[in-house]
Amino acid sequence: MFSKRNKNGFYGEFGGSFIPEMLRDNINELEEKYNIYQKDIEFQKIYRKILKNYVGRPTPLFFCKTYSKRYNAKIYLKREDLNHTGSHKINNAIGQSLLAKKLGKKKIIAETGAGQHGIAVATTCSLMNLECMIFMGEIDMHRQYSNVLIMKSLGAKVIPVYSGSKTLKDAVNESIRYWINNPESYYLIGSTVGPHPYPMIVSDLQSIISEEIKIQLKKKGIIYPNYIISCIGGGSNAAGSFYHYLDNKKVKLLAVEAAGLGIHTKKTAATIFCGSKGILHGSMTFVLQNQDGQVLPTYSISPGLDYPGIGPMHADLFMKKRVKFLHSTDNEALQAGFELMKLEGIIPALESAHALSALKKIFFKKNEIVIITLSGRGDKDINVYNQFMNKNFLNHEPIT
C-alpha cells in the first residue's frame, strides 16, 4: 500500500516523532488513545453524526458544465467550501476536539494561516465548551482579518505572532512552544504535519472526502475518476482527497504547490520543487532550507499554502512517484479563481485556486473524469481578488 506507515509513524524515510522530552508523554498518550477511539464504534458514531447534522456532510460533487466544455473533460468539484465554517478544516477539528475531550483536556491550542483552521477550531471549541487559543502570524492576521474577527466572535483568544516571517510556520513554532510550557493543554494541529501521530490522525479524519467521492461517483455509474487534483501546503485536503485512491494506479493524483512569484525566485512556497530533506516541526520531510539547515522564509499570496514544509506522507508519495506535483504562481492561481467565478459562479479560496490552475497545465483526453477539491470558499480572499482585478492582471508584485 502506498499509504502504509510503520509503528513509529514513518512513511518510508519520512515522518517520525522528533520532539522535546517534555512532550513525550503527551504524544504517547495521544497515540494510544487515538488507536483506541479510531476503532471505537460509539466514538465514530458520534463523530459521523456531528459531520452530518452540524457540518453538513456529505458535501456535493458538483458537475461543472461550462468548465467541462472549455477543457474537454468531465470536471467535478468536491465542494468542501460548503461545509459549516467554509472549508475542509472542520472535518479534522471535530474529530480532534472529540478526542481531546476523551483525554480530559479542557484547553485547545492551534495554529492557523488562512484562518480557516482557526475558525474550525474556534467553532468546535464553542460547540464542545472548550477553551480556545489560536496562534496566527501578524501578516496573516492583516490579510485574513475577517477570519480573525470570526474567531474572536466565537470566543477564541487570537495570539499574534511577531517572530520570523510572521506567517504559518511561525504560528506553528509558537504553538509548540506554548504546548511545551503548558503540556496539560491539547495541541490541535490543522494539517498532515508535525510529529507522529498527527499526520496519521489528520489524514484519517480528512479521508471522509475521498470516501464520499467514491460513493458519489458510484451513484453516477462511474467506477473511478481519471484525475484527482488538490492544492497542497502541509497537505490535509490533499491527503483526504487522495486517501481512498492511493492504491488504484489508474487514478492520476495531482498536487499543486504555491510557487509564489516563481520557483526560481526567493518568493515561493514550493517545497517539493525547491526544498530538501530535513526535520521540521517534529517530522522528517521536505523543507525549504539553506545549506546550513536553517528554514527559509516563504511567500505565497495564499496564506494557507505559505508554509516551508509538506506532510511526510506526501513526501513519501512524491518519492514513490505515486503523486505528481505541479506548481502555480500567484498570478496563475488568481486567474484560475476568476475563471471559476465567471464560468460557474463560484468564488474559490486562493488555496483552492491553485488546484484549479492545474487545468491549463494538463492535456485531457475527451470525457476524462476530473475531480478537483474545492477546499474552501473565497469570501475571505475577496479583497485580494479585487486588488488583482484592479491591477488588470499586469502587476507581478506580491499583493499583501
Rank of each mutant, 00 (worst) to 15 (best):
283 S>V: 13
206 Q>C: 08
185 S>W: 11
224 Y>W: 15
277 K>W: 01
222 I>F: 00
210 S>H: 05
203 S>R: 15
178 Y>I: 07
307 Y>S: 13
249 K>W: 09
284 M>E: 15
287 V>W: 09
263 I>N: 05
247 D>N: 14
187 Y>I: 09
171 A>D: 01
275 G>E: 07
279 I>G: 04
221 G>P: 04
209 I>N: 00
223 I>S: 07
248 N>C: 14
291 Q>W: 15
251 V>S: 04
294 Q>Y: 15
229 I>G: 13
175 S>H: 00
195 P>N: 04
175 S>D: 06
237 N>V: 06
263 I>Y: 03
205 L>E: 05
163 S>H: 06
169 K>L: 10
234 G>Q: 03
287 V>H: 05
282 G>T: 10
299 Y>C: 12
269 A>D: 05
310 I>A: 08
168 L>N: 02
163 S>C: 12
266 K>Y: 00
165 S>Q: 12
207 S>A: 14
234 G>C: 10
288 L>W: 03
202 V>R: 03
232 I>S: 09
262 G>H: 03
269 A>G: 02
230 S>P: 05
222 I>K: 00
235 G>I: 14
288 L>K: 10
249 K>Y: 10
204 D>T: 14
201 I>H: 02
188 L>K: 05
195 P>K: 10
265 T>P: 07
297 P>I: 06
242 F>N: 00
271 T>V: 02
240 G>R: 12
308 P>K: 05
274 C>Y: 01
308 P>A: 07
234 G>N: 01
240 G>A: 12
216 Q>W: 02
205 L>F: 15
169 K>G: 12
186 Y>V: 10
197 P>Q: 03
284 M>A: 15
299 Y>T: 11
274 C>T: 08
232 I>K: 04
252 K>L: 09
203 S>H: 05
260 G>L: 02
183 P>L: 09
293 G>L: 10
270 A>W: 01
241 S>G: 12
215 I>P: 01
266 K>C: 02
206 Q>A: 11
227 Y>F: 09
255 A>S: 15
272 I>E: 04
209 I>H: 02
210 S>W: 02
267 K>F: 15
185 S>V: 15
177 R>Q: 12
280 L>R: 03
283 S>T: 15
260 G>N: 04
301 I>D: 06
250 K>S: 14
298 T>E: 12
202 V>Y: 07
282 G>I: 08
168 L>A: 09
223 I>M: 08
292 D>V: 11
225 P>K: 01
265 T>G: 04
260 G>T: 03
268 T>V: 10
176 I>C: 06
209 I>D: 01
285 T>A: 15
292 D>T: 12
233 G>P: 03
297 P>E: 13
267 K>L: 15
297 P>A: 13
198 Y>M: 14
193 V>A: 11
304 G>I: 07
279 I>Q: 01
301 I>H: 07
237 N>E: 03
263 I>W: 03
246 L>S: 07
225 P>Y: 01
206 Q>L: 12
199 P>Y: 09
183 P>Y: 03
236 S>E: 10
310 I>R: 06
251 V>N: 07
303 P>T: 10
266 K>D: 12
270 A>R: 04
194 G>A: 05
283 S>R: 06
223 I>T: 10
230 S>A: 15
281 H>L: 09
310 I>M: 11
249 K>R: 08
164 G>V: 11
